[in-house]
Write a protein that binds this DNA or RNA. Structure first.
Lengths: 135, 135
DNA sequence: ATGGTCCTTCCCATCATGGGAAGGTCAAGG
DNA sequence: CCTTGACCTTCCCATGATGGGAAGGACCAT
């Protein structure tokens, strides 16, 4: 299987497959005499693992640790669970941050007439967060 | 006021102030004969505007548009409101994505014993999302 | 005049991904 | 047998926002 086929089979672009190889995230595959990369079913399996981890928001370095746990047949499930819970915590922190932004903006937008007049509490808040909203 | 003072007065690092200037987000300030940047109160005001916009999750390019709206005395508040609502929508999309990730991981972690045994639904899902959970 | 703290510009690194150029390879069809 | 088109290779560059740090100049208090 060439890289293009491995890409469509795994959902990881050929570009990223080469990149993952260059940073040592995945094993370098065999090569043909002409230098073409040749992938086996197991390689595609690893690529799908990486794709899934990235989709769940794990960074590449975290994905590297997950791959190590995956290959370590003797790991304790507690280790994997702790890793996942830590990541969940980070996701929740990020979510809370974004929700804070959205909430502030919703409040400002709610107080903005949204008509032809120029007065706008949104810009007033940006210009002077402490003073905006005063009358 | 030197750049360091403007930085602590605005909450924007000196490094970023220079960067914002280099990309034309803020006006180049006056200079002393020796080449030092000299900031006035109005400059710090603009920097705080930028800082606030960034804190609310606007990109630099979006911040550029907000600055333009701010300086355009004749804009309609409806334009600003529409801009804010669009950004709120993007924030909500991002939040939903992250919540999807967190929810999936919570589900997987919930089904993981988290003990000394190696069996782990989390890794099974990463390795085979479609098949994990089968018995 | 000396030292410490500020300032200047310039280059490099991050993280993950894509774009594209220049050139080699392979398979199909004339 | 040769061309054509689709693939592959490596290499460099760009993104977005920020920080780190070097080399050198400026300012100020002792």
């Amino acid at each position: 299987m060439n890289i293009g086929e491995a890409a469509s089979a795994s959902g990881v672009s050929a570009k990223m497959i080469r990149y993952y190889e260059s940073i040592g995230l995945i094993e370098p595959p065999a090569r043909t005499e002409a230098g073409y990369r040749v992938y086996a079913g197991e390689d595609v399996h690893a690529l799908r693992f990486v794709k899934r981890a990235r989709t769940l928001g794990f960074s590449i370095e975290e994905t590297r640790e997950l791959l190590a746990l995956w290959h370590d047949k003797s790991r304790a499930s507690a280790d994997v669970k702790a890793f996942a819970l830590k990541h969940i915590g980070e996701l929740e922190t990020k979510i809370a941050e974004l929700q804070g932004m959205a909430q502030t903006l919703r409040h400002l937008a709610h107080n903005c007439h949204g008509d032809h007049r120029p007065d706008c509490p949104i810009l007033e808040d940006l210009a002077d967060p402490a003073g905006a909203g005063r009358h």
